[in-house]
Write a protein that binds this DNA or RNA. Sequence first.
DNA 1: TAGTGGTCTAGACCACAAT
DNA 2: TTGTGGTCTAGACCACTAC
Lengths: 250, 250
Amino acid sequence: MVEFSGRPAYLQIADDLRDRILSGDLAAGEQLPSESDLMRDYDVSRTVPKMAINVLRSEGLITSHPGKGSFVRQARQVRRLGNDRYRRRRDASPPFASDAKAAGQQARWEHRSREERASQVIAERLAIEPGDSVMVTDYRFFADDEPTQLSVSYEPLAITRDTPIELPEDGEVIGVIARMDSIGHRVTEVSERVTTRAPRPHETEALDIPTGVPVLCIVRTHYADGAPLETADIIVPGDRYEVTWRTPVD
Amino acid sequence: MVEFSGRPAYLQIADDLRDRILSGDLAAGEQLPSESDLMRDYDVSRTVPKMAINVLRSEGLITSHPGKGSFVRQARQVRRLGNDRYRRRRDASPPFASDAKAAGQQARWEHRSREERASQVIAERLAIEPGDSVMVTDYRFFADDEPTQLSVSYEPLAITRDTPIELPEDGEVIGVIARMDSIGHRVTEVSERVTTRAPRPHETEALDIPTGVPVLCIVRTHYADGAPLETADIIVPGDRYEVTWRTPVD
DNA sequence: TAGTGGTCTAGACCACAAT
DNA sequence: TTGTGGTCTAGACCACTAC
């Protein structure tokens, strides 16, 4: 490696490869030079190209497959989460199913409900006391059998106990707004809070994403005239989703 | 290293350390065992703890400082970007300044404007033709001298040419809504599109964030009755920001 | 001066993929 | 069989920090 500007060799190699990827010289799906190639080209030991490859992988630009090589990541199809999905709808299908149908994809989901005591955080979000009973439901959503969304929903049992919607996935009415309507609680507002972070290991597994792809975390709460009816933690892969909304001014 | 379940040693070490961090056993700001400690504890060569540390760093859980050690990252103060910031306001200060003031912080920003020809992407967002003239303004916002937000704003010169607001930061009126009002274009709607990804190198530098912290990318457009007046790309560190909004239902 | 992480060399063995 | 990336050993020298 010819010394250059004091910048470590592995970062120079990463810079060179990143430039080629972002400029399109190395197109999506294309194979990168192998680690052996890079050893020869830059006259360094294998550690150095390996570190360069690691940098690009943690930036989400490439993926590596043992026995095959490293490849420029494909741009993923973007799924949109718009605030227009919070409407009273005529059809019985929840937002995820209608979105998938509109995109020509097959929707499917797993769910599991259980009763729990509210934690401090959940109690605050639902304006109840810590320890109060809540119905907790875990979801995993698939589009064309590809896992694309995780969510955990919390509903105060003080509201749903002994109603037909106590178990969220057990009745014929689906979707928070329609279900709450059916027992006389009218949702008037939805709030969402969006943050991002690197995925936890169980999330990379459940969503089948490579390291280097951050996730979007959405904390969503349904309100009826200021009183929380439901809150959920939604986790989606950052490379397959965008969250959008439109706000009128004045 | 005692062989265990076929899982690579560096991932087991990463798992052990991650568990201690997420459980609070290793608190924010606390120093991790040194690489030498881990070599001894797990009876491996230095490469292995080094790889484990790399995993946690790329997950954004720790930072490392040469000569000192690796430390659990501090939770950052969260700045909120709410859709309530798009209002006609009495005061002359832009959203960033009022937010900082409300948080007891000193706001400051750099900016630089130039005339450019619209790219394909920008033309689509502004509903103009590629090659049409646009005023491009780069911003970097600081809160208490800490860089916290990057943005690039685009305005069609077909709208602002030869008006007092042609240069966004040159007049007394500040903020897109107020400026456009002042030349008779009434903003009626704002749309935002939020995505996330790992930061580009110039962003880690400009925002002073460690690798492992993803950024939130916000594509924002101001409309007057459906016609775009301005669009901007906003980049904020994922560990210091959350984007929130409230939507009425029906 | 001792300890830390950053960078790098020069190897090794492995599982896996392509042929 | 050859080439690929994944994991790991056993060193080295460096700059930086704390004492």
